[in-house]
Design a protein around this nucleic acid. Structure first.
Length: 562
RNA sequence: UGGGGCGUAGCCAAGCGGUAAGGCAUCGGGUUUUGAUCCCGUGUACCGCAGGUUCGAAUCCUGCCGCCCCAGCCA
């Protein structure tokens, strides 16, 4: 993991880590701790998966074992190569390196088939020819025991023959399925003769047309774990009642190892959604521009938004691993990025809503270069050169003709400090016919660079600015939370009704420091007094800079009035 | 109504019989050429409820309540 900046810490809570530590301490576990991250390649990874990735890779790293990346590809109709590629990119981006080459459940299809044969020979599985509708009726419900299928009593020889026929393509989809013979009256529905193989006349992205029968998740997953020597098979809580089945297969098959499943509570975050079905809908219905739209909670989306791998890892560690089905405040995620970016992002100035300021006592045509720190408390980040000219721009919101003492910005007749530069005083306001302020005339105090004014009175406020002429223009995409409510869909018919209409505001013609335009894509920066931004991974160019807002600076002034 | 899981401050979350850590959020205050950062302070948590055991229980026992997951030939 050296090529990445991964620094795994074990500061958070993780009950699985505690369990493994105890197993090792008590001699119940010897040898390597082997885990795996097992995504199905049917969509992009999202922030919820980050938790699973951190848990699996983190545990392997913590115990000096190893973790592999295995695609759980047993449903060819929903899976695509592009997702396989994207998932690998995302896991790497997060900072993890899997052991060996990538694996696929489909790598084990032949072995899995033999395992199925083993079950049939032992009378533990049978080919059922009930239609799915009939099967559902036979299954019963929570209050009614199921009924045995009339095909349940077929002999092993008969089942063997039928199963061969399934593999040979002599059954259409839904006409036959191999089921484990367990208990149609089990309280746990997963044990009511679960499907082991079903017919799918579909081309598989890895195995092509070699197979027309595919193993179910329950059959493929645990056995793949065993084949790979996984010791701790970690998944989320909704699979808890699959564990008896997971163990049943392991108990009834000649597998080379005995993995054990552990479940933890899925990560849910307020003001967002993390279900592939919902994310796909946002894309399909055009609410966002694809899986990697910066508003999306996908890893590629938040990457484009400017989030850092370290921030996401810190967030997952801070949230902890438990069996509680909770909802973490998105503010906790935002805190994690601010914390990282505050320490590492260079500072710069950008004026998003320009108001022209004329420094009446500054010579026209003159350009004074001011050197500013790259970061308030880091000397290793290079200083930057800021051209100061007679005409500059500041934010409209940073000027008022009059205001009370709580307003710490530029007020007519009063002084304010230009960030990194001089103290100025506003003398005149120029308005258009509509009465709107279009220009402010100020005088600057040439003795205040790094110094207090002669009267010794420190200006109340500091505002950011950029030269009107010696600056670059940029498009700045200001993002807000994708949803306006903490639990999308909770109080509405359809979760899309909770979408935040202001999740994206595009600002054209923003003025940025000239040194910022050449930034390479994905350069992260803090626009002082505004927030953290990143040069868009795809759209940013030196000629037409595009910055995406990662997260705004904390603003204890917001909501107050002056 | 069957099976499984979970309930500690607004949100995460320690605690595992000895009298409630920490983080986020909130609200104050200090420092500050970012109303940022940093620093300090700030919460009667009836430990879901009710009984019981005990000198003593969030921690043990019993009952109840609430929330989540399961009736795909999805994962």
């Amino acid at each position: 993991m050296s090529e990445h900046d991964t620094q795994l810490t074990a500061t958070g809570n993780n009950f699985i880590r505690d369990i493994i530590a105890a197993q090792i301490a008590h001699g119940e576990h010897t040898g390597d701790v082997v885990t795996r991250f097992p995504p199905e390649p049917n969509g992009f990874l999202h922030i919820g998966h980050a938790q699973s990735i951190c848990v699996n890779f983190g545990l392997a790293d913590y115990f000096d074992g190893f973790c592999r990346l295995r695609f759980d590809d047993t449903n060819p109709e929903k899976e695509e190569q592009r997702y396989i590629d994207q998932i690998q990119e995302d896991v790497h981006w997060l900072g993890f390196e899997w052991e060996g080459s990538i694996r696929f459940s489909s790598d084990y299809f032949e072995t899995l088939y033999e395992y199925a044969l083993h079950l049939i020979e032992n009378g533990d599985a049978y080919v059922d020819e009930l239609s799915s509708e009939q099967a559902r009726a036979y299954r019963g419900d929570w209050n009614t025991p199921g009924t045995n299928s009339p095909y349940r009593s077929r002999t092993p020889a008969e089942n063997l023959e039928r199963f061969e026929m399934m593999r040979a393509g002599q059954f259409g989809e839904g006409q036959a399925a191999l089921r484990a013979k367990i208990d149609m009256a089990a309280g746990n529905m997963n044990l009511r003769d679960p499907i082991i193989y079903r017919v799918r006349h579909a081309t598989h992205h890895q195995t092509g047309d070699r197979w027309c029968i595919y193993p179910s998740y329950d059959f493929a997953h645990g056995q793949s774990d065993a084949i790979e020597g996984v010791t701790h098979s970690i998944c989320t809580l909704e699979f808890a009642d699959h564990r008896p089945l997971y163990d049943w297969f392991i108990d009834h098959l000649p597998v080379p190892a005995r993995p054990v499943q552990y479940e933890f509570g899925r990560l849910n975050i307020s003001f967002t959604v993390t279900s592939k079905r919902r994310l796909r809908r946002l894309i399909d219905e055009g609410f966002v521009n694809g899986w990697d739209d910066p508003r999306m909670p996908t890893l590629s989306g938040i990457r484009r938004r400017g989030y850092t791998p370290a921030a996401i890892r810190d967030f997952c560690e801070a949230v902890g691993v438990t069996r509680t089905d909770g909802m973490v405040d998105v503010a906790q995620l935002e805190h994690a990025v601010r914390d990282d970016l505050n320490k590492n992002a260079p500072r710069a100035m950008c004026v998003m809503d320009p108001l022209k300021i004329v420094l009446t006592n500054f010579a026209a045509g003159e350009v004074e270069t001011i050197t500013a720190r790259g970061h308030p408390d880091r000397d290793d980040l290079p200083p930057r050169q800021l051209p100061l000219t007679r005409e500059i721009v500041i934010e409209h919101a940073d000027f008022r003709e009059s205001a009370n003492k709580k307003y710490k910005r530029l007020v007519l007749g009063k002084k304010v400090r230009l960030r990194n530069a001089y103290v100025i005083q506003a003398d005149d306001v120029v308005k258009n016919d509509a009465g709107e302020i279009i220009e402010v005339h100020c005088r600057y105090d040439p003795d205040t660079l790094g110094e207090l004014p002669a009267d010794g009175v420190k200006p109340k406020g500091v505002i950011h600015w950029v030269s009107a002429s010696h600056s670059a223009r940029a498009t700045v995409r200001e993002y807000d939370r994708l949803f306006a409510t903490d639990k999308p869909g909770r109080d509405t018919e359809d979760f899309v009704e909770d979408l935040n209409p202001n999740a994206l505001t595009i600002h054209h013609n923003c003025h940025i420091e000239p040194g910022l335009a050449p930034a390479v894509p994905e350069t992260r920066v803090q626009f002082e007094r505004i927030g953290y931004f990143v040069a868009d991974r795809y759209d940013h160019t030196p000629e037409a800079p595009v910055f995406n807002q990662t997260v705004a600076l904390r603003d204890s002034w917001a909501g107050k009035t002056a």
